[in-house]
Each structure stands twice: as structure tokens, then as C-alpha cells.
Nucleic acid binder design. Structure first.
Lengths: 139, 139
DNA sequence: AATTATCGATTACAGTTGTAAACTTCTAGT
DNA sequence: ACTAGAAGTTTACAACTGTAATCGATAATT
């Protein structure tokens, strides 16, 4: 299995625009990001290039200006990055960490309902307790 | 407000041991991590030094070998890192991202109960929907 | 066709991270 | 007190990141 190449914070900003618009020209990305951030065009170009190198973006070079398409779905990227972060945590703490996220995130009623169902379902097979593995081998 | 200095993946490994043991000598950290990883002692020493520079660890130099103490609580570190990661996400996606985490994490029945209560409570004031801000200014 | 404005690629440069060897300074055992 | 071994410090070095200027290619304008 290959190493998950993670996106950096700056790269996330670019990808969010790409996902939202579906496909973009560098001009569009630059337009949005120069409003959102204080980056210069050159900086944004660099990010686009790096994302291509990491295979998160692909340019359709048959058109000019190039049209960039995401090569990873937003959901997959979220899945990878978020779980990757969680891998750092002591498994005993994950429940509370999720609680922290819930408190700090705006979530729609619908999503909350879904989460509740998910939890209710998960509870059926949940362990009484999870023990810390911070000192164990086999990270 | 000061920039949140984030811990790297490697540094997390060290901190988890420190938090779990409360206070540690480098020897203890090395002992655990040479079992968990293929890092050399020198590597682990470097990480400890960097953690001191970042003020996540402090050495009590009155004892020899030094005894290292965490300067940030595990909960605070989790809070900062996890929310920092979530800041990257489109706010529309956070609910689903949490769902993803729930599915992929082992959580105790107790924690699940807590999360359900939290959600039920949050639902009372939750918005009908959250709209994407990926193209908005004021990141 | 020549000039200019765009767009894309190349180069830059400092700071961070992963990874570790080498060097120095204690401390404990002889 | 002397020396080996442990503990701590300095140095190393490549890859990755943030941040961007500049150079070269393409397209649009005169």
C-alpha cells in the first residue's frame, strides 16, 4: 500500500475551490484566493503545480488556459486527512476528541440526526471501554 | 493571539508517552519508541529537543537524568490539532467528516452515550443547513 | 506581423521535519 | 582519580512548505 500523500493547509485552500467549482482555471483559483488570503498569484501557481505533482490535480492541457480537475474526491481527501490526524491520538481519547469537534463545528440538524443514528447503531457493538495503547508496540 | 505551534506526527508519538507516564526520562521514551518504531535513539533525542523548543516539553534539570514534563495537556493538544485540521474543511462537510471518524474509531459505550447526549442537545439550536464557504473571503 | 498581456514553468530561498551521526559532558564503577 | 558508558548537545542533510520573483510560451490586440 502506498503512503498517503497528505495535503498541506495551503493546498487545502486550493482544493476546496477546485472541488466547489468542479473544474477551474488558474485564474479562477487566483481570483478567489487573492480575496481570501494575502497570497500573490505566483504563490497560488506554485500550489497548483505542487498539487499536480502530488496527483491531486490534473490539468486538461487540450484547452488553453488549462482547466484543472481534481484527481481525488473531496470525501476521500477528508477521509484520509482526518483519519490520519486521528491516528496520532491515544485511542482512549478519540471519543472525547469527537465530542470536541462536535461542539466546535456547525452541523445541520440533518447531519446531527445522522450522527445520532450512527452512534446508536455503533453502541450495540461498542466495547465497555477502550484501553490506552500509547506504550504498545505495533503502532 | 499567538500562532498555534502544531505538533508533527513524530512529535505526537513522543508526547503520547510523556502524557501517559506523566513525566519521563529520555531513556523511558527511547525504550518505548524503539519498540514501537524503527527510530534510533538519536532521532528520539532530537524530537525531545524540538519539543522543548516548541514549549511542549520542559526538562527538570535539577535531576540527572533530566525528567521531562509536558507543558501542554493532552486534551489541549488534541483540541488544538483536531480543530486545526477541521479548519481546513468546507463547513458543509464537517458533519460527515465526524461521521467518518465515528465509524473508524473504537469508542466506548460510555463515550458514545456522551456523544449522543451532546448531539441531542446541540440539535436544539442547530441550523437547518450549513452553507459552503469555500469561496468566501474571511477564511 | 509586431507588441503586449496572460498563463505556465523554472528558480529561489528560508524554515520545518524526518532521520541520524558525532561530539561533549556527566556519572557510576574500578 | 580514571575511565567507560549513559545522557545531553551540536551538526547534518535531504525533502517538504510557505512564499514569491522571474523567465519563457501563448494568445490577444493594434
Amino acid at each position: 500500500m502506498k503512503e498517503i500523500e497528505n495535503m498541506t493547509k495551503a493546498e487545502w485552500q486550493v482544493m476546496r475551490i477546485v472541488w466547489t467549482l468542479g473544474e477551474v482555471t488558474s485564474k479562477q483559483v487566483i481570483e478567489v484566493l487573492t480575496r481570501k488570503t494575502d497570497w500573490k498569484q505566483a504563490t497560488i501557481k506554485t500550489l497548483i503545480i505542487r498539487l499536480q505533482k502530488k496527483n491531486f490535480l490534473k490539468a486538461d492541457e487540450s484547452k488553453r488556459p488549462y482547466v484543472y480537475h481534481p484527481q481525488i474526491s473531496e470525501n476521500d481527501a477528508i477521509h484520509q486527512n482526518v483519519n490520519n490526524m486521528f491516528d496520532n491520538l491515544c485511542c482512549m481519547k478519540k471519543g472525547k476528541a469527537i465530542g470536541d469537534l462536535i461542539q466546535n463545528s456547525d452541523i445541520s440538524k440533518g447531519d446531527i440526526q445522522d450522527l445520532i443514528s450512527l452512534l446508536q447503531d455503533k453502541e450495540k457493538t461498542a466495547p465497555e471501554s477502550v484501553k490506552c495503547d500509547c506504550l504498545e508496540a505495533t503502532a
